[in-house]
Simulated scan of single mutants.
Amino acid sequence: MTIRVYYEDTDVGGVVYHSNYLNFCERARSQLFFDAGRSPILDGGHFVAKHIDADYIKSAKFGDILELKTTLVEIKNASFTLLQEVFRGDVKLFSMKIVLVYIDFTGKMAKIPSSEKEFLAAL
């Protein structure tokens, strides 16, 4: 997914504010579902972040065009792990591993539905 850095994404110095990298990655995860004609909100539940390990490597700045890449690292019965990276051209700016857990609408962790597990495995 490609995005442009807007003024609202930056601090007073024109550098992307640290928490916005998480927002960019959230958009990229949602876009994976939308591109496949799906919604990240499922009939029986949805995914929530359980753990994030983030590495801020270099700064993105106002006006930059960024490429976000998402790769499946691992899938389990009720969770999956993604590697998400942000690039400006060939330069990696940010990298994170995120563990997402499937919860049902009662708020309890549950087994990922098989159709969604197949979709995720194809990433």
Rank of each mutant, 00 (worst) to 15 (best):
V15F: 13
E26H: 04
D55R: 14
A121F: 02
G107E: 04
V73L: 12
M109G: 10
F105D: 03
F105A: 01
I103Y: 07
E85L: 00
L66Q: 03
S39M: 04
N77S: 10
G13E: 11
E26P: 02
A54M: 10
N20A: 03
S114H: 03
V15I: 15
T10P: 04
M109V: 12
F119Q: 04
K108A: 09
I52C: 02
L72P: 02
Y7D: 06
A54H: 11
G13S: 13
R4K: 12
C25R: 01
V12E: 12
S114M: 08
A49F: 04
Y17L: 06
V48Q: 00
L22R: 03
L42R: 13
L123S: 06
H46V: 14
D11V: 12
K97R: 15
F94S: 01
V15Y: 06
A28Y: 01
R38V: 00
V16Y: 02
L120V: 11
G14P: 08
I98G: 08
I57L: 12
L93K: 11
S95G: 11
K69H: 14
G44N: 12
I52L: 15
D43E: 15
F62D: 01
H46N: 12
M1N: 07
F33Q: 08
S19G: 12
G14I: 07
N20F: 04
S59W: 10
L42P: 02
Y17H: 12
E116M: 01
C25S: 04
F33D: 02
R27P: 03
L83R: 12
G37I: 05
L123Y: 01
T70P: 00
C25E: 00
A28K: 00
V12A: 13
V12T: 09
Y6N: 10
D9Q: 05
S30W: 10
G37V: 03
L120E: 11
S79K: 05
A49T: 09
P40K: 07
V48P: 00
R88Q: 13
E118M: 08
A28R: 02
V99T: 15
M1V: 08
N23L: 13
V48D: 02
R88G: 05
S114P: 05
S115P: 12
T106C: 11
H46C: 14
D53Y: 07
E67N: 15
V15E: 03
H51S: 09
F47W: 11
S115W: 04
L82C: 02
E8C: 09
M109H: 03
D64F: 06
G37S: 09
K108Q: 14
G89H: 08
H51G: 01
S79M: 07
F87T: 05
F119G: 06
K111G: 00
K111D: 01
H46L: 14
L72D: 10
